[in-house]
C-alpha cells in the first residue's frame, strides 16, 4: 500500500509512458484547470492558453493534503509557469513541480499532449 502522496510518485517514475486519453480540449477552461481521474489518482490539468501550453500535476496539495490544485489560479513567476493552491496560496512550478515559496514539499508533474482535440496525460505504464 502506498500513502496518498506516494501514489503520485509511483505513477511518474519509469521511461515507458502510457498516454491516457483524459477529455476533450473544451472540457478545460481557458487559463485555468480541471481535475482528471486516472485509476485511483486525481490529476490537475491546466489549459494555459496565454502561453499556448498544457500542464498536468497531482491534484493533491502536499502542504495540508487537500485535493485542490486543479481549482487554483495559474500564472507565472518570471518565466516559470506556476499554480497557486486555493487553500493557502502555496505556489508550485508547473514545469518541474518545485515549491516556489522555498518550502520543502513539492509536487509531481506529468507530461501532457493534445491530439485531435483530445488531451492526453502520460503515466508510468506499470502504474
Amino acid at each position: 500500500m502506498f500513502t496518498e502522496l506516494e501514489k503520485y510518485k509511483k505513477a511518474e517514475q519509469s521511461e515507458e509512458i502510457i498516454w491516457f486519453k483524459a477529455a476533450s480540449v473544451s472540457a478545460f477552461p481557458e487559463n485555468g484547470g480541471a481535475c482528471v481521474k486516472y485509476k485511483d489518482l486525481q490529476i490537475a490539468v491546466f489549459n494555459f492558453t496565454r502561453r499556448n501550453e498544457w500542464y498536468a500535476c497531482q491534484n493533491l496539495c502536499p502542504h495540508k493534503m487537500q485535493m485542490a490544485l486543479s481549482r487554483g489560479m495559474i500564472g507565472s513567476c518570471g518565466e516559470e509557469p506556476k499554480v497557486a493552491c486555493p487553500f493557502h496560496k502555496m505556489t508550485f512550478s508547473l514545469k518541474n513541480g518545485n515549491n516556489l515559496d522555498g518550502d520543502e514539499c513539492s509536487i509531481i508533474t506529468y507530461p501532457v499532449k493534445v491530439e485531435d482535440g483530445f488531451v492526453f496525460i502520460g503515466f508510468d505504464q506499470n502504474y
Binding site: 494555459f48 496565454r50 502561453r51 489560479m73 500564472g75 513567476c77 518570471g78 497557486a84
Partner: peptide
Amino acid sequence: YDALLDEFGEGDGCEVCKP
C-alpha cells in the same frame, strides 16, 4: 483581465493580480 494584462501588464499573471 486578459485585455488589461495585454495592454498594461507583462508575463502571465498570478494569484495576486488576478483576483
